[in-house]
């Protein structure tokens, strides 16, 4: 049974179809990187799966549960963690409150231990306002938050945007170890090609709302094939 199964999904904004009849399936524990230039439908794909955008056609199932018509909070409660590209933290709340909001399981302490394993510095900053963290620290808090929820499926929108190489490396390490330890399935929307190829099992390029090409990251010509779609 697929951890995430999307069939013929179309979505977009009033009047403009951005995503056109896209299908994909993720096996449990699989990491897929969705690449592509801006405006090609990458974020739209995640928002449509979460139920933030209307699904004009198609169906979505999460671990076999029908999720096409669910509102975002119901999708989240199926064990889906969504990390939006922008405004993904409550800036005026403390680090702890940001974590508490996402972590619905009763053993908050155990969840904190999870956070400590990946990002120990956050434990010392629990009372700090999230908005006062640096850009890199905010992204790490985002990652920590979605992993600590125990989500089985993560939808992550450009977590690497604007980050220093060292932070990107660290996020890559955390993602790989989360998959090893918990078998978390992930759909990563990325612009950072080296990061995407390093953490994902498969890649797919979205071009004008459709998958133009897909491949396994183990194939040696992946980088060249993706770049062909990305830039000059």
């Amino acid at each position: 049974m697929s951890a995430l199964s999307v069939e013929n999904l179309s979505s977009g904004y009033a009047g403009a179809v951005v995503l056109r009849e896209v299908s994909l399936a993720l096996a449990p524990g699989e990491i897929l990187a969705v690449l592509g230039k801006n405006g090609m439908g990458k974020s739209t794909l995640l928002k449509a799966v979460m139920g933030f955008l209307p699904k004009m056609t198609g169906t979505v199932a999460i671990s076999g549960s029908e999720a096409t018509r669910l509102s975002p909070h119901r999708v989240a409660r199926l064990g889906v963690g969504y990390v939006a590209q922008e405004k993904a933290l409550f800036q005026d709340m403390s680090v702890e409150e940001n974590l508490r909001l996402a972590i619905r399981r009763p053993d908050f302490e155990a969840a904190l231990a999870e956070v400590e394993a990946s990002f120990p510095f956050l434990l010392q900053r629990l009372k700090q306002r999230a908005g006062t963290l640096s850009g890199g620290e905010q992204k790490m808090l985002l990652m920590a938050r979605s992993l600590a929820t125990g989500a089985k499926l993560l939808l992550v929108d450009e977590i690497t945007e604007g980050l220093q190489p060292s932070v990107i490396d660290r996020l890559a390490g955390v993602i790989r170890s989360a998959r090893e330890r918990h078998g978390t399935t992930m759909l990563l929307v990325e612009q950072h090609l080296p990061f995407a190829l390093a953490v994902a099992d498969r890649w797919a390029v979205l071009d004008r709302g459709e998958f133009a090409e897909t491949g396994a990251t183990s194939e040696p010509d992946s980088r060249a094939r993706v770049l062909k779609h990305l830039s000059v």
């Binding site: 975002p72 909070h73 989240a76 409660r77 969504y82 405004k87 933290l89 005026d92 909001l101």
Partner: peptide, 11 residues
């Protein structure tokens, strides 16, 4: 503070 973000977290 941010209704959409809250919904995305299962609220």
């Amino acid at each position: 503070m941010n209704e959409d973000l809250a919904r995305g977290l299962g609220i």
